[in-house]
Design a protein around this nucleic acid. Structure first.
Lengths: 339, 339
DNA sequence: CTGAAAGCGCTAACAA
DNA sequence: TTGTTAGCGCTTTCAG
C-alpha cells in the first residue's frame, strides 16, 4: 500500500528482470516473430510478476499504428446511438480495433472540436453520424487519409463511405402509407428540426408524399429536452385541443409517439380507427406497452456493424469505399390502418 | 480530391511553411510560453492553411502527460450508465480532460482486459463502476499510480476514491417502507444476481430489513436479456399466477417494474391498495407513464460529476482520496402506501 | 532465434 | 522572444 515508485514500468524493467533484451521482450509481448519457448516463458513470468502494462503511446509512435477507431455521435441519451455502438462493438471485438467515442451534442462547432481532438490521436478510422459537417470538419476528414464511414443517413454525398437509410424516403413511405390508409388531416410532432438533419429529412419526405396526394400538414409542434414520454403526452394534448379534427399524428421518434399513444388511450380515442399514429426508430424498449405504435426501423445495430466491418476490411487492405443504403419496412403496429 | 500524400503533416511541415522553428511552432499551438504576436500569426496561418492536426501520441510521449480519463462501465444499454457519463462529461468539459469509455458487459474477465487496454494508454485517471474487481484488476489499478474513482456503490472498500450510494441500505430502506406500509407477502423480481453486484446488494438489504420484521421473501423470479418492459410484464404475470396472494412486488429496476405495473393496471389490480410495487433507479424516461412506480433515485448524474471532479482536482494537485456516499430518499410514486 | 542502433513526432530544459 | 539538444518508450530494420 506504500505509494512508492510513481514511475510506471517500462520494457527495460522487464528486460532486466528477465535477463532478455528489450527487443525480445517486445517480441514476446506482441506475439511477433519467433522466440524460443524458454525465453518466452521467462519474459511472460517477469512481466506478470512486475505487473507490467505496455505503453501504447510509445508503441503507437514507433510503429505508426494505432488500433483506435473514432466514433463520433451526437449523444448517448438518444438511445439510438448506444444501439449503433452495440453493432460497432460486436464487429470490432473480432478484430484488434477499439472504438473511442466522441460526443457532439448535435452542435457543429463541437463536432469540429471533437473531431480535431480525436484525429490528433491518429485513429485507424472514423465512424461519424450524419452527412452534414462543417467545411473544416470535412477537410480534416479528407486530409486524415484514413477510412471514414458516415452513418445513419444516405441522403447526400459521403466523404468516403456511408451506411444508413434514406430518411427522406422513410418519411415519404410513411406519408404514402398514411394516405393509402385514408387519413387526411395530419399533424407532425417532433424535435426542433434545426440541428437534427435526419428528423428534418423525414419531415421533408412526409410533406413531399402528402403533397403528391394534394395534402398539407395541418399542424405541427416541436419540443426539446425533458422526458420524451411526458413531452409526447403534453404535445399531443396541446395539438388535439387546438385541432380536434386531426386524424393522424406523425411523431419524429417512437418515445414521444408512445407518450402520445398513452394519452390517446386514456382519453378513449379510437386508434387507429378515428385517428392514426406513427413514430420512427423501431425502439425495442417499448415492446411492453399496451399498444404498439406504428414505426419504421432505423436499422441502428446493422448500421453500426456494417460501418465497423468497412473499417476493419480497409485495415486489411481488403476494402473499398462503399455506400450502403438499407431499406427498412413500415411496421404498422396497432396504430396505423393498412391501406 | 487526389489522394496523394499519405504522410500526415508534422510540426516540421508547419515550421518550414512558416519559417519558424519547430519549437516555437509547438509553443504557439499549445499556447505556452511567450511568443510575439507576429510570429504567432505566421504560425497559425501556416497551420490552418496546411490543415495541420497535431500528433498527440508524440506529444504525450514527450510530455509524459495524457489528458484522457478512462471510464469503465458494464454497458451502454443499461441506461443508467449513459447518465453517469452525462455527469462525467459535464465536469470534464470544463477541464482539458477527455473521457474514454470502455465496456465490460458485466464480465470480470472483460473488465480486466479493457482495463489493461485502457491503462496502456496511460490515462490521467480512472473512473470505474463498482467495487468488485478481479485481483489482477485491483493490482493494475493500484500500480497505475493515478487517481482511481470507483463509482455507483459504496458497500465496500475502495482502492482509492469512491462515489456512490449504499445499495444494501437502499434495499433495507425499501424493505422498511414496505413493512411500515403493512405489506407482508413480498415477491422479488430482477436480473440474475450473479454478476450485478449492486442488484444483489439491494436484494440482500431487502431481505435483511424484512427479516427484522420476521418476514421472508415469498417468491422470486429472475431474467436476463430482452426488452425490459416486456420482461416485466411476463415475469409479473408468471409470479402472480403462481402466487396470487402476494401483496408487494419489488423489482430490481424501474423498467421491469414499469412493465409489471402496466400489466397490473390492465388486469385491474388495486395498486397500491391490495398490492404495492417498487422499482429502483428513478428513471426519468418513465415520467410519462399513466402511473408512477415507487422507486429510489440512484443519483447517476451526480455520481458522475462528483467522480469527474475528484479526478480533476487531483490533476491540479488539489485533491485527496475521497469516499462519498450519497443518500437518496424513497419516491413513493403511486404504487407504495405511506406507512 | 536474438540483439544493437536508429528513429517515430513531439516537448522539457536549457542556451542564446 | 527564439532556437538547440536530448530524449519520452517503444518498434523497425538490419546484423549476428
Amino acid at each position: 500500500m506504500t505509494k512508492q515508485d510513481p514511475r510506471p514500468l517500462t520494457l527495460r524493467d522487464v528486460s532486466e528482470a528477465s535477463g532478455v533484451s528489450e527487443m525480445t521482450v517486445s517480441r514476446v509481448l506482441r506475439n511477433r516473430g519467433d522466440v524460443s519457448a524458454a525465453t518466452r516463458e521467462k519474459v511472460l513470468q517477469a512481466a506478470k510478476r512486475l505487473g507490467y502494462v505496455p505503453n501504447k503511446i510509445a508503441g503507437a509512435l514507433a510503429s505508426q499504428r494505432v488500433n483506435l477507431v473514432a466514433v463520433i455521435i451526437p449523444s448517448m441519451s438518444n438511445l439510438v446511438f448506444p444501439e449503433v455502438m452495440t453493432g460497432i462493438n460486436r464487429v470490432l471485438e473480432t478484430t484488434d480495433l477499439q472504438p473511442v467515442v466522441g460526443l457532439t451534442d448535435y452542435l457543429p462547432e463541437k463536432e469540429e472540436k471533437v473531431l480535431y481532438e480525436m484525429l490528433s490521436w491518429r485513429p485507424s478510422g472514423v465512424i461519424i453520424a450524419g452527412l452534414e459537417h462543417s467545411d473544416a470538419a470535412r477537410a480534416m476528414l479528407k486530409a486524415a487519409g484514413i477510412p471514414v464511414v458516415e452513418v445513419m443517413d444516405t441522403d447526400g454525398l459521403p466523404i468516403d463511405s456511408m451506411v444508413g437509410i434514406s430518411h427522406r424516403r422513410a418519411g415519404r413511405e410513411m406519408g404514402r402509407a398514411i394516405l393509402e390508409a385514408g387519413y387526411r388531416r395530419i399533424g407532425f410532432l417532433g424535435t426542433g428540426l434545426g440541428l437534427d438533419h435526419r428528423a428534418r429529412k423525414r419531415f421533408e419526405g412526409l410533406t413531399e408524399a402528402l403533397a403528391k396526394g394534394g395534402i398539407e400538414i395541418a399542424d405541427q409542434e416541436f419540443y426539446s429536452g425533458g422526458s420524451a414520454l411526458a413531452k409526447g403526452r403534453e404535445m399531443t394534448a396541446a395539438m388535439m385541443t387546438r385541432n380536434p379534427d386531426l386524424d393522424f399524428l406523425y411523431y419524429s421518434n417512437d418515445l414521444i409517439g408512445a407518450g402520445g399513444l398513452l394519452w390517446m388511450i386514456e382519453k378513449g380515442y379510437d386508434v387507429p380507427g378515428s385517428i392514426g399514429m406513427a413514430g420512427f426508430n423501431g425502439v425495442r424498449l417499448l415492446k411492453g406497452l399496451p399498444r404498439q405504435l406504428a414505426t419504421m426501423d432505423s436499422c441502428r445495430d446493422e448500421i453500426g456493424s456494417l460501418a465497423a466491418q468497412i473499417i476493419a476490411d480497409r485495415m486489411k487492405d481488403g476494402g473499398e469505399a462503399q455506400s450502403i443504403e438499407l431499406t427498412p419496412k413500415i411496421d404498422f403496429g396497432d396504430t396505423l390502418r393498412r391501406g
